[in-house]
Amino acid sequence: MLDVLDPLTAVANLSTLYSALPVGDRPGAAARDGYRAVESWWPFERPVPSGTEIDEFAGSIEAAGVELVALNFFLGDPAAGERGILSHPERAAEFHDHVEVVRRLALRLGVRLFCVPFGDRRPGLAERDQRATAVANLAHAHRRLRPLGGVPMLEPLSGLPSYPLVTAADAVAVIEEVDGVTGVPGSVGLLADLYHLAAVGSDIDADIDAHGGRIVHVQLADHPGRHEPGTGRIDFARHLSRLRARGYTGRIALEFFPAR
């Protein structure tokens, strides 16, 4: 377990570990703490920021000398109940424009993993229509990012009554639909956040056994509390050993809010 928290091997989530700092100061703070690799939630207020905003964020990563391993797509305003725009038909054109910004960051910074928030259920829209929009948008993101080695990811989330992807099986069902559209197995990866899986009462070992081959990125925070390992009840040593035994060779990202 000690190496899970080792800054030389772990990925620091800039948006949780350094949430008290301005966005531009976070990469430098992570580097000073010894981290060589980082990930981030969408660092801009809009899905299509200005060129100056893009340059400032990218410049902060480059100046810190850290590797940006993973980046979230636009989430929106969580306080207003927004959880992404992937499945919102009225924002499909905006999503396509957003993908081009993500692609620009991928070209400049070399980031290759992209968590795509699914979006909350929209009143008055049929669930099948939202799902069809999400599948089409994910297929588009795959086509634009694949030439760069990029992989969109879906993540089950907890604590959000209007969010459709709660379990690993929920996310995998959408991933399989996208694979059918693109004809490319693994066109979308599964992001396994052990905190969210624990929070919804999933059998994490069973999820790893059933879907381990689709997991391309792992995040952790303890449950309850969403703080560092050791503050809750998740058996990280067992789950991470099981992941490795099932062939997972990726990084482990620290997406917790420090209790200390």
Rank of each mutant, 00 (worst) to 15 (best):
A237G: 13
A210C: 04
H88V: 12
Q219N: 06
H96I: 05
P49F: 00
D120M: 11
G34D: 09
G232A: 01
V172F: 04
E228V: 10
L138K: 09
F74H: 14
A10T: 10
P117F: 08
D6M: 08
M153T: 05
A31I: 06
D179C: 04
G81Q: 10
A136N: 11
A37Q: 14
R103P: 12
A192R: 01
E127T: 10
H140T: 14
A10D: 05
L14R: 03
T167D: 05
G225H: 09
D129G: 12
G180M: 06
I215G: 01
Y248I: 02
D205H: 12
A30M: 00
H217S: 10
A126S: 10
L2N: 15
V4E: 12
F118H: 09
G201L: 06
G65D: 08
T16E: 00
A168N: 07
T9V: 12
L14V: 01
E45I: 01
R260C: 14
A173L: 04
A58T: 11
L107S: 14
E56G: 03
A259P: 10
R226F: 03
G247Y: 09
I85M: 09
G183A: 06
A136M: 09
L68D: 04
P47G: 05
R122V: 15
R144W: 14
D235H: 02
G51V: 02
R238K: 15
L148A: 07
H211S: 00
R83L: 10
D120V: 15
D222F: 05
F57P: 11
A192H: 04
D205G: 15
S40D: 08
S40N: 07
G84P: 11
A198W: 06
V174W: 01
R244Y: 08
G159V: 12
L109P: 10
I215E: 00
G183D: 08
L17G: 03
A31H: 09
A237T: 14
L148Y: 14
G124S: 05
L71A: 05
L2D: 15
A206W: 01
D203Q: 02
E67V: 15
D207R: 00
S60M: 03
V172S: 00
E176Y: 01
L2M: 13
P78M: 08
P22Q: 04
R103E: 15
R121W: 13
L191W: 02
T167R: 15
T182L: 03
V166F: 01
G28K: 07
P152S: 05
I175L: 02
P156H: 06
D235C: 02
R122Q: 15
R246V: 08
V216A: 03
R104I: 08
D33M: 03
Y35I: 05
H217I: 08
